[in-house]
């Protein structure tokens, strides 16, 4: 049963690679930059800059590890591959509380086995693994509609 989803799951190690990691303890954030990749299980997210925001007012701090992550922001182009699904966009945000990943930009694509849907905003909710692609502008719809084949 395929357990991949476009959003981070919470029971597998996460590895983040980049050229640089800069931690600003007082601002409660850490910035990974330079060919950043976030790998978890078979999900890979690639972006140019990944900013990790820590919950304000948390008693711990970033470096003591006690600070909880509030949200992640990926900017400068985002590409996520998970299983045979690929999503691309300009900016990606992942909110740890709502566990929702939002990919936005002028051209957001979600493709699987060659089917490509294009829109302006892709919202993936981890709790139910559902991805919703919205078109650009209030009236238009995503250009191609796909229904992923069931895997099992």
């Amino acid at each position: 049963q395929d357990n991949s989803s476009l959003a981070l799951s919470s029971d597998k190690p996460v590895q983040i690679d980049g050229d640089k990691l800069e931690i600003f303890e007082n601002d409660g954030k850490a910035i990974f930059s330079g060919a950043v990749s976030v790998v978890q299980d078979d999900t890979i997210l690639r972006t140019s800059v990944l900013t990790i925001f820590y919950a304000k007012g948390g008693e711990g701090s970033i470096a003591t590890g006690a600070a909880d992550i509030d949200r992640l922001l990926a900017t400068g182009g985002v590409n996520i591959q998970s299983g045979n699904q690929v999503a691309t966009g300009e900016t990606g945000t992942y909110d740890m509380k709502t566990e929702t990943f939002v990919l936005s930009g002028k051209r957001v694509t979600l493709s699987e086995d060659g089917n490509v849907a294009t829109g302006c905003k892709l919202t993936v909710t981890q709790s139910n693994g559902r991805a919703k692609l919205e078109g650009c502008g209030s009236t238009s719809r995503p250009t191609v509609l796909i229904q992923p084949k069931n895997k099992n």
């Binding site: 357990n3 476009l6 799951s9 990790i52 590890g65 740890m96 981890q126 693994g129 559902r130 919703k132």
Partner: peptide, 26 residues
């Protein structure tokens, strides 16, 4: 709707309210 693969319920059920701690070394 575009339906991504639904992961198994339990992993997500368990993950509903969580936060990932990043430990860095102040």
């Amino acid at each position: 709707k575009v339906v991504a693969k639904a992961a198994s319920n339990d992993a997500f059920e368990r993950a509903r309210r969580h936060s990932t701690k990043v430990r860095v070394f102040k």
